[in-house]
Write a protein that binds this DNA or RNA. Structure first.
Length: 573
RNA sequence: GGCGUUAUAGCUCAGUUGGUUAGAGCGAACGACUCAUAAUCGUUAGGUCCCUGGUUCAAGUCCAGGUAACGCCA
């Protein structure tokens, strides 16, 4: 039995993510996890919320809540939505967990011991009224270049000129509007990524099976300009993981926290600790997934993420792990996704443009979204969501091809025979050919899923559903029935068994509908098909079933138009 | 301004290391069926593979230049 460690990029805490975020990491990771479990493999599937940093603090302030409370609330909301989409995390953790505090401090200590941390003194803008240092983009002022009065400390978005906060005329805090600012000297820790460049490159060179997109991004960062740059791992904030060197204080670093990019990926590991704790297990339970010296040698680790996250996962996080000198499990395969656009533009939180995860679940069941998103996943290039395409795809694939198949075969059997599998007749050439055809299709389906070819696997699955309709159309039991009821019974029996097969095979994509089909067939948690002839004769004559409710109601033109309107945003096209 | 990605049928997209007549689904037209969610099944029609030039016996595929869209960075 293979062992799969699977992680999805961890979503940031401030707000609800849109469909593009969902299809870029969590959803395909869930597909893979569900498939591997269905094949009987051992899976640990982890995700969490990324909770530290300035945006979280500001969002909390805006909501009028203490940041810890805000994060706890938002974590609960994101967890509920994830459940709504049937994301089957073994644990949905939090980067603010005690486990992550301890582990992040541990890594920092190890890196310091290895001589991979250096201290840097730098000048940053301090807001006296806010009582805090301000990151560049939270300082506003007048652009010295074009006179735009709302330029940010990192860049003027009017003339795009790159700025330093000290360049701004009449700078003020974007948090409070206060102009009572001063430049203060502050000390920070930097991870000497440059010293690990050779190790990182050697490691990446071993990953010959990674997509070109992934390795080329990594190589670019390794070689661009002066090569891989050292990176600050601390910040002057209140909310975060206090800077400590392992279990000890870090002189000079009092009151500072680790920078969110440093602690967030470590949460992948810490999350396994949270999972063990939640299940009442001891440390060995999670260490056998993460420590190659404690049983993780046979683990295959796959990460899912959007393309913007690739540098962190190919360089920064591996630098942390390699630099520690400890035997942590490193990623084996890294599946990255492009972006999903919304109706000719980008999803936009500020403009309310596009569909967000909570809204999606308000209007339709999760299977609709899962099917469309996965069958149109932005694997090779950016993809496009349009309501017309969504309506047509979902109606055709789910309602007409799959839903109607289950409906027609169960209703036919009920009207001509009864609500149990009919007896009589024997397979002929057509049936044997069908089994051979579907066997080949299943093999392709499995191989696509194994290789995480998301779109292709959806196509294969759809083809399997369609073969059921082709069969019924060819043998036409409704005609056969008049002259040869025995043969019609055999054809109907096979049709019912096909419905059960589709239920089982579809579970990674559309878990709810799959469960409905399987339970309507009164097939109790059937295993993934092995020998197809056996599988398609499993429901024997006399086995009772029920005719399920309509599996997928169609999306009407009225609904589509209403949603198009509602989610078009303030600058609707 | 630099870098990167993309450009294939009306739409959404496949096209492996260059190798006959460029594929799928949807949409369209026509036909079959009438068990079923006006569903299904079959057939057909649609392409100057963005443009120009080059390499080659052979280019959607490789190279150069251009155009357009998008993204990232300084």
């Amino acid at each position: 039995m293979a062992r799969h460690l699977i992680t999805s990029a961890i979503p940031y805490i401030n707000g609800i993510k849109h469909l593009g975020n969902l299809v870029g990491s969590q959803l395909p990771a869930d597909l893979f996890a569900r498939y591997q479990r269905a094949r009987g493999n051992e899976v640990l599937f982890l995700c969490a919320t990324d909770e530290h940093g300035t945006p979280a603090e500001l969002a909390a302030a805006k909501a009028g809540k203490p940041v810890a409370e805000y994060c706890a609330d938002m974590h609960a909301i994101q967890a509920r939505i994830a459940e709504g989409f049937r994301l089957s995390f073994d644990h949905f953790g939090r980067s603010s967990s005690p486990q992550n505090h301890a582990l992040t401090q541990h890594f920092a200590g190890r890196l310091a011991d290895a001589g991979l941390i250096r201290e840097v003194s730098e000048k940053q803008v301090y807001s006296i009224a806010d009582g805090r240092f301000l990151p560049d983009r939270y300082i506003e002022g007048t652009c010295p270049n074009c006179g735009y009065d709302r330029a940010r400390g990192d860049q003027c978005e009017n003339c795009t000129k790159q700025l330093d906060p000290t360049d701004l005329i009449d700078p003020r805090s974007a948090v409070s509007g206060s102009t009572d600012l001063e430049v203060r000297e502050t000390k920070h820790l930097y991870l000497r990524q440059s010293a690990l460049k050779e190790d990182l490159e050697a490691w990446i060179d071993t990953k010959t099976d990674w997509p070109v997109l992934t390795t080329s991004i990594a190589k670019k960062w390794l070689h661009d300009g002066d090569g891989l740059q050292d990176r600050g791992i601390t910040r002057d904030l209140d909310w975060g993981i206090p800077v400590r060197r392992g279990n000890e204080d870090w002189p000079g670093m009092e009151g500072k926290v680790f920078y969110v990019w440093f602690d967030a990926p470590i949460e992948y590991i810490a999350c396994a600790g949270e999972w063990a704790e939640a299940g009442g297990l001891d440390a060995s339970a999670w260490e056998r997934w993460w420590r190659t010296d404690k049983g993780a040698g046979d683990v295959r680790y796959t990460q899912f993420m959007g393309k913007d996250n690739v540098p962190f996962h190919t360089l920064s996080f591996p630098a942390t792990i390699l630099g520690s000198g400890e035997p942590w499990k490193m990623v084996d395969h890294l599946k990255s996704f492009n972006y999903l656009n919304y109706d000719g533009g980008q999803f936009s939180t500020s403009q309310g443009r596009g569909v967000f995860m909570d809204q999606a679940l308000d209007i339709l069941p999760p299977d609709y979204w899962r099917w469309w998103l996965l069958s149109h996943a932005p694997e090779n290039s950016d993809a496009e969501f349009t309501w017309e395409n969504f309506q047509v795809s979902v109606n055709k694939d789910l309602a007409d091809v799959l839903g109607n198949f289950v409906s027609r075969i169960t209703k036919f059997c009920r009207s001509k025979f009864s609500e149990s599998v009919p007896a009589g007749g024997a397979w002929g050439e057509t049936e044997n050919a069908l089994v051979a055809d579907i066997s080949a299709r299943i093999q392709r389906y499995e191989s696509c899923l194994e290789n995480m070819e998301v779109r292709k696997s959806a196509q294969e699955l759809r083809g399997i559903w369609a073969s059921g309709n082709e069969y019924l159309q060819t043998v036409a039991p409704w005609s056969t029935f008049r002259s040869d009821p025995e043969t019609a019974a055999m054809q109907t029996r096979l049709g019912l068994n096909l419905a059960r097969l589709f239920g089982v095979l579809s579970s990674p994509f559309i878990p709810d509908a799959s469960a409905t089909i399987v339970s309507a067939m009164r097939a109790h948690s059937p295993a993934w098909p092995g020998d197809l002839t056996d599988f398609l004769t499993a429901m024997e004559p006399g086995h009772s079933f029920e005719v399920p409710e309509v599996l997928f109601a169609k999306i009407t033109d009225e609904q589509r138009e209403e949603w198009q309107q509602r989610f078009g945003g303030t600058t609707a096209s």
